[in-house]
Simulated scan of single mutants.
Amino acid sequence: MPLNPATSETTTAFKSDLEDRHLIYDYAVQPCSSNNGREEKWRYEMWFYSASRIVYAIHGGPMAGRKNFQAATYQCIRPGELWQVNWLEETGTICSLVYDLPRGKITTLLGFSRGHWERSEEARGDKRNPGDLERWRGLARIGDQRERVLLSEQADIVEDFWGSGELEGIEEEWETM
């Protein structure tokens, strides 16, 4: 069930609000000990590819250099205003993103697996490379559910357009996990 609820209203809203939409956004990460007391910009790129898939790339922050695509579920909170998108990564990381269309904001909760968080360099690469995918799957086996790192952040959208941009397309039947 990639679209929730799957009604004629939400299907129509998805087509006009999200389908084939491409966002580039920056998280302004506040100063803390892990970034030496400096504010940082973490740049992410998200393409809402279809009603069942997302494609993304990470350009800044500890996960920079990651290119991925995932099976996703979309939940319409308010057509034309708020959407929630959720997915599980092969690294064991749980992702939940809320897109506030009128305000141009992204709000996320990420539940990083211990392996993904502690070995972020190993989470880099491109899922289309079988070696990268297998390495990422190995990250999910490090630690257990209680050792997740929860990260809640908000981002400002800096670009909003339709189409692939510089991201590569995928086939719907490609394995995501």
Rank of each mutant, 00 (worst) to 15 (best):
residue 6 A to Q: 07
residue 6 A to Y: 09
residue 7 T to M: 04
residue 11 T to V: 03
residue 14 F to L: 09
residue 16 S to N: 13
residue 19 E to I: 10
residue 19 E to A: 14
residue 21 R to H: 06
residue 24 I to E: 01
residue 25 Y to S: 05
residue 27 Y to I: 15
residue 33 S to R: 04
residue 36 N to E: 09
residue 38 R to E: 15
residue 38 R to G: 09
residue 40 E to L: 06
residue 40 E to M: 05
residue 41 K to V: 09
residue 41 K to L: 15
residue 46 M to P: 00
residue 46 M to N: 10
residue 46 M to V: 13
residue 51 A to H: 05
residue 51 A to G: 14
residue 52 S to A: 07
residue 52 S to Y: 01
residue 56 Y to N: 06
residue 60 G to S: 01
residue 62 P to R: 01
residue 63 M to I: 01
residue 63 M to H: 10
residue 65 G to K: 13
residue 68 N to Y: 11
residue 69 F to P: 10
residue 70 Q to K: 10
residue 71 A to D: 14
residue 71 A to E: 13
residue 71 A to G: 12
residue 71 A to P: 05
residue 72 A to M: 04
residue 73 T to C: 06
residue 73 T to N: 07
residue 73 T to L: 08
residue 75 Q to Y: 10
residue 79 P to Q: 11
residue 79 P to H: 12
residue 79 P to N: 11
residue 80 G to A: 02
residue 81 E to C: 06
residue 83 W to S: 11
residue 83 W to A: 12
residue 86 N to H: 05
residue 87 W to M: 04
residue 90 E to L: 13
residue 90 E to R: 14
residue 90 E to K: 12
residue 91 T to A: 12
residue 91 T to Q: 11
residue 92 G to I: 09
residue 94 I to A: 13
residue 94 I to M: 12
residue 96 S to Y: 04
residue 104 G to D: 10
residue 106 I to G: 05
residue 109 L to Y: 02
residue 112 F to D: 07
residue 114 R to Y: 00
residue 114 R to G: 00
residue 116 H to Y: 09
residue 124 R to T: 00
residue 127 K to T: 00
residue 137 R to T: 01
residue 138 G to Y: 05
residue 139 L to S: 06
residue 140 A to R: 14
residue 140 A to T: 00
residue 143 G to V: 14
residue 145 Q to W: 09
